[in-house]
Amino acid sequence: MLEIRNLHATVEGREILNGIDLIVRPGEVHAIMGPNGSGKSTLANVIAGREGYIVTEGEITFDGKNLLEMAPETRACEGLFLAFQYPVEIPGVANLYFLKAAVNAVRKYRGEPSVDAMDFWELIHQRMDLVKMDESMLKRSVNEGFSGGEKKRNEVFQMAVLQPRFAVMDETDSGLDIDALKVVADGVNALRSPERGFLVITHYQRLLDYIVPDQVHVLFNGRIVRSGGKELALELEEQGYALYNEEPGRARRAAA
């Protein structure tokens, strides 16, 4: 469903992604691991279409469509979701209102009428249970004054409501205590389905104890240097990323 071929991308003129090839099929969960500065978040942002992330070579297709030609909102309407590493606050906009605007934007794109208020309310409540979210969070402004854990939980909640076909989780585990991590992982696992794909980006193996991936890729200096099954994550946990350090990397030097 998501195919990345020979992807090169620059940020502020520096090459961060250096020829990535990756294929995720429906129903699969792929994990991307790698040290800081290896290009993990850049990959997430390029997939989502963030401004300032320039693709210089290669392609990404989503169900056969050229993703790189689409505006970020079109990608979202096509069913692509990014769980942000640092979700922003939008003061004065209630979480519930924001979600409704998002759901309706997607429906409009598909040529469907706006969501029925009762149906929406039912969906919201069902999904709230999934991430053990308190109803009071619906009325609060989007992410405003949320703790780190609440923000991440809110990302998973939005994903559960929007029901994308493909989700990229950008270090969703960072800053979470073990209880919050379990809640987030439970939410993701509940959404796993034969039609849905996931790309889980993480620095630590810990998350993958709870979200068990089909494949693990090691990203280093903007390139996937190794791929394997879930046992690769454990190996990395033991040996660290030092093993991959022997090749002097352009990205690392640029970041220094």
Partner: peptide, 30 residues
């Protein structure tokens, strides 16, 4: 209005103009 806020909205499917009016209406809510 931060680009981060607008991008966040876009990533949820909300176009730029709707995103800005959403953010501004939030700003005026009180």
């Amino acid at each position: 209005i931060s680009e981060d806020q607008v991008f966040y909205c876009k990533q949820r499917g909300i176009g730029a103009e709707d995103a800005v009016s959403l953010i501004v209406n939030g700003f005026c809510k009180e």
